[in-house]
Design a protein around this nucleic acid. Structure first.
Length: 371
DNA sequence: TTCCCGTCCT
DNA sequence: AGGACGGGAA
């Protein structure tokens, strides 16, 4: 899948690789998962956390996680609810559910050890091509290639790849290039060096070609604007949506919360009963419908307590939180997997996605002010 | 407000 | 091939 021009440029690039590795040894960030003692399990956890998530965001979550779930066995034996609590705020909650599921699989099939074989790794939920290659090479020294967004950017610039990386042919070309570069004796070092180069030097919008150990072999570095690579598809237009949640309080100060089914947006997380506003539907109607459809209660919807803005992908979500009162009927879990009453302060201990956490924090503050 | 990013499902 | 899935930084 390589082009002939690729072969030519490879022969110029390979002799520079020792400079890349030296650069990495001198400039690598000291990160918690880069301790020499990092277990394959810890490499796995860090790689899952780093999917779609910045290093600075993931680091404190990683520390807390490893303290609570230091081994595959600790993770597998913990309840999903607690696992999600440790993930709350990181987003993409399927990652936590898959990690938990895979830990159970590892205990059942591999005596709790992470396999070193890429094919076996790919069979675990939540592990795709990138993560399988990362675990194999970083944790076990297997010469597997990795193409994450950093590597993709570095390769597209060096080789002047004009195809769009998400298209199959271009993806295959990038995979072939990455594979051709992996040294059999130090795949982990090389892969981390490529990713670190992308993160620290060959950055998306402000590449520092002057500091790059590979710039002598780089196509983009010799052009007016190295940031023309990688080529991108046109961005999707922003879509605005509104959601409404009902805050139904009991006289003891507790509020009704529901746990979502373990799939889809905010799967497995707790929240105030919520629905997306239909076209032309006012938040007060939506909140009424949410209580009815999610827990089977009819109630009177009162004042809007507050508004939380949140971005998910290309969606801009406005979450309206409205007070509800005078419920009729018994609350039952119609469109949720569990339901409970808790004070807003207690609710903050549950697994909550970020906008729900904001909403509950403000309810807790309100209650505090009310005495 | 825009940009950035792996895996799974369809 | 393309959409769903979040949160933080620029």
């Amino acid at each position: 899948m390589m082009l002939s021009e690729d072969t030519e440029r490879l022969s110029r690039l390979v002799p520079l690789l020792p400079k890349l590795w030296d650069w990495y040894r001198a400039n690598a960030r000291a990160l918690p998962w880069r301790e020499p003692s990092t277990s394959p399990y810890a490499v796995w956890v860090s790689e899952i956390m780093l999917q779609q998530t910045q290093v600075a965001t993931a680091a404190p979550f990683y520390e807390r996680w490893m303290e609570r779930f230091p081994t595959v066995r600790d993770l597998a034996s913990a309840p999903l609810e607690e696992v999600l609590r440790y993930w709350a705020g990181l987003g993409y909650y399927a990652r936590a559910r898959n990690l938990h599921r895979a830990a159970k699989d590892l205990l059942a099939s591999y005596e709790g050890e992470l396999p070193s074989d890429v094919k076996a790794l790919l069979r675990l939920p939540g592990i795709g091509r990138y993560t399988a290659g990362a675990i194999a090479s970083l944790a076990y020294g297997i010469p597997a290639a990795v193409v994450d967004a950093n590597v993709e950017r570095v390769l597209c610039r060096i080789f002047g790849v004009d195809g769009i990386p998400s298209q199959a042919a271009t993806a295959r070309r990038l995979a072939a290039l990455a594979e051709a570069l992996v040294p059999p004796d130090a795949p982990g070092l090389h892969n981390q060096a490529m990713m670190e180069l992308g993160a620290l030097v060959c950055s998306p919008s402000d590449p520092a070609c002057g500091r790059c150990p590979l710039s002598d072999a780089c196509h983009a570095a010799r052009t007016e604007s190295p940031t023309d690579w990688p080529r991108r598809r046109a961005a999707k237009r922003q879509v605005r949506t509104a959601h409404a949640s009902a805050a139904l309080f009991r006289s003891d100060g507790s509020v009704l919360l529901v746990r979502r089914a373990p799939h889809g947006l905010w799967g497995g997380m707790w929240e105030l009963p919520r629905r997306e506003c239909a076209a032309g539907e006012a938040p007060v109607q939506t909140a009424e419908r949410a209580l009815r459809e999610v827990v089977g209660l009819r109630a009177t919807i009162g004042a809007e307590l507050h508004t939380v803005r949140h971005a998910v992908m290309h969606y801009a979500i406005t979450l309206h939180v409205l007070r509800a009162s005078e419920p009729e009927g018994d609350a039952s879990p119609l469109d949720c997997v569990a339901l409970r009453w808790a004070t807003p302060r207690q609710a903050l201990e549950l697994p909550l996605a970020s906008p729900q956490r904001q909403a509950l924090e403000r309810l807790a503050a309100m209650q505090h002010l009310a005495g």
